[in-house]
């Protein structure tokens, strides 16, 4: 279709397809260095433990583990495992996929949640998914526990925990 023939409005999808366009599909790939803090956290997940870091100055037990306390601006003093149980701080019930396409009516809904982990300082949560629970039954304040991948399947990623379920 020539540009002078393009109507001011009301282009049909057929007409739209025929207009000249430039397209480009970028290939962007990154491999971020985990470094000390994230490295220790992910290694620990591989071992079936959630690792926190402790700052002596502010007394916070922080999640995820980190090499420096961003509030006191000093190195953290030690790394320590915390429990794999916690409390739902907030959650959402997702009816769409990652790419915003709709889930079919019979597909299970995703329930991402912030989970405040037992043993860490108040407000120190991690982001994960809830599972083995009816969306309508999820409540803020609900107690949940991590469901881990089998040890030989873990690869040092937050998905080494499959989801958190009520207990």
């Amino acid at each position: 279709m020539k540009i002078e023939n393009v109507p001011v409005k009301g282009l049909s999808s057929d007409e739209y397809e025929k207009t000249l366009k430039i397209s480009w599909k970028p290939t962007l790939q990154y491999a971020w260095d985990n470094g000390i803090g994230i490295g220790k956290y992910l290694q620990s997940l591989k071992e079936g433990k959630i690792l926190a870091a402790y700052c002596e100055k502010c007394g916070r037990i922080m999640l995820p583990a980190r090499a420096f306390c961003e509030m006191c601006f000093r190195p953290t003093d030690k790394y320590l495992p915390v429990k794999d149980t916690g409390t739902v701080n907030t959650f959402a019930i997702c009816h769409v996929n990652w790419d915003a396409s709709r889930l079919k009516p019979d597909e299970p809904r995703y329930i991402p949640a912030v989970i405040e982990i037992d043993g860490a300082s108040p407000g120190q949560g991690i982001m994960h998914l809830l599972g083995n629970v009816e969306p309508a039954k999820v409540r803020i304040g609900m107690k949940v526990k991590a469901v881990w991948k089998p040890a030989d399947k873990r690869e040092g990623s937050i998905t080494d925990i499959l989801f958190f379920e009520p207990y």
Partner: peptide, 12 residues
């Protein structure tokens, strides 16, 4: 290369 340190730790 700098595999032993994250970009945040590097800047810190």
């Amino acid at each position: 290369v700098s595999p032993s340190i994250s970009f945040k730790e590097l800047t810190y």
